[in-house]
Amino acid sequence: MTIMERKTSLWIRRFNPAEGARARLVCFPHAGGSASFYFPLAQTMPPSVEVVAVQYPGRQDRRHERPIDDIAELADRIAGELAPWTDLPLALFGHSLGATLAFEVARRLERSGTVPIGLFASGRRAPSRHRDERVHQGDDRALLAQLKRLNGTDAQVFGDEEVVRMILPALRSDYRAAETYRYRPGPRLSCPVYALTGDDDAMVTVEEASAWGEHTSGPFELRVYPGGHFFLTAHAASIRDLVSHHIGAHAAHAQHL
């Protein structure tokens, strides 16, 4: 893949090209989310860290594509798409569904010889902690009600029937992917893992978040923030500083090896 092809990938969105960057942060959206969710982060991250975001099929400019409702298939595709972006040290950040997906992509990258400099898992229980959830099997009303409860979508969206019809297929597909995912035991990651969670998140307990430490042989850190499932919105500046600090430290170390 050429540089031009890399920059125009349907899967990877580069919001703030940073030619002098020392590391790259790859962001994975939540269920029903899109790459643009991370645009504010890209705008405020220091120039030493370039932010790119994954755009899943079935939403926004990819809305005419079939959504992929299987974590393994998504991870295979995304890991392949990231291969041309490994010219800089990579860190991965995922929220909710995106955290599970980032973990599976990290496993694939490590197997192919690319060890991320960090995995930031936000708003999601550890892969080995399973809950029997079946939101994706409910009707449209139940699915939208779940989305409202999590407070991660602008309330105006729910009043626009056309927009609702557009987001429902991808939303249902994402929930199916998240809820049918089953962790398959294997080698632990060797990269550092940072678990971020809200203290009032109905989707994740602190114990379930702390279990991320079982999935790496490298350093592990748990950060608990006030708030619910989308705690990261209220604490965006703090999380940005945390992520940029750790990326900077590990990128500097990697360059001196």
Rank of each mutant, 00 (worst) to 15 (best):
M1V: 11
T2I: 05
M4L: 07
E5H: 11
K7T: 13
S9I: 11
S9F: 01
I12Y: 04
I12L: 09
I12D: 12
R14E: 07
N16C: 13
E19C: 05
A21C: 10
C27R: 03
H30V: 01
H30M: 09
H30A: 01
A31D: 02
G33F: 02
A35Y: 10
F39D: 11
P40C: 07
Q43M: 12
T44M: 07
M45Q: 08
P46K: 07
P47T: 12
P47M: 14
Y56A: 13
Q60S: 01
R66F: 08
D69I: 05
E73I: 07
L74F: 08
L74G: 14
D76K: 02
I78E: 09
A79C: 14
A79K: 02
G80V: 02
E81I: 09
P84K: 14
T86W: 06
L88A: 12
A91C: 05
L92E: 04
F93H: 06
L97G: 07
A99D: 00
T100I: 13
A102Y: 02
A102V: 08
E104R: 05
E104P: 05
V105T: 10
R107S: 12
G113R: 15
G113K: 08
V115W: 08
I117V: 10
I117P: 06
L119I: 10
R124I: 12
A126Q: 04
S128V: 03
R129V: 06
H136N: 03
D139V: 03
D139P: 06
A142I: 08
A142Y: 03
A142Q: 07
L144A: 00
L144H: 01
A145Q: 05
Q146Y: 15
L147D: 00
K148G: 09
L150E: 01
N151T: 08
T153G: 05
D154K: 00
A155V: 09
Q156D: 14
G159N: 14
I167W: 04
L168E: 01
R172S: 03
S173F: 11
D174H: 10
R176W: 15
T180P: 06
T180V: 09
R182P: 02
R184G: 11
P185F: 03
P187F: 00
L189M: 05
P192Q: 15
Y194Q: 01
L196Q: 10
G198C: 14
D200S: 15
M203E: 10
E207K: 12
E208C: 13
E208K: 09
A209I: 02
S210C: 10
G213T: 09
T216N: 08
P219E: 14
E221P: 00
L222N: 13
Y225T: 14
G227E: 09
G228N: 08
H229C: 01
H229M: 12
F230Y: 15
F231C: 01
L232P: 02
L232E: 11
T233H: 12
A236Q: 11
D241I: 09
L242W: 15
V243M: 08
V243G: 02
G248D: 02
G248M: 03
A252K: 11
H256K: 10
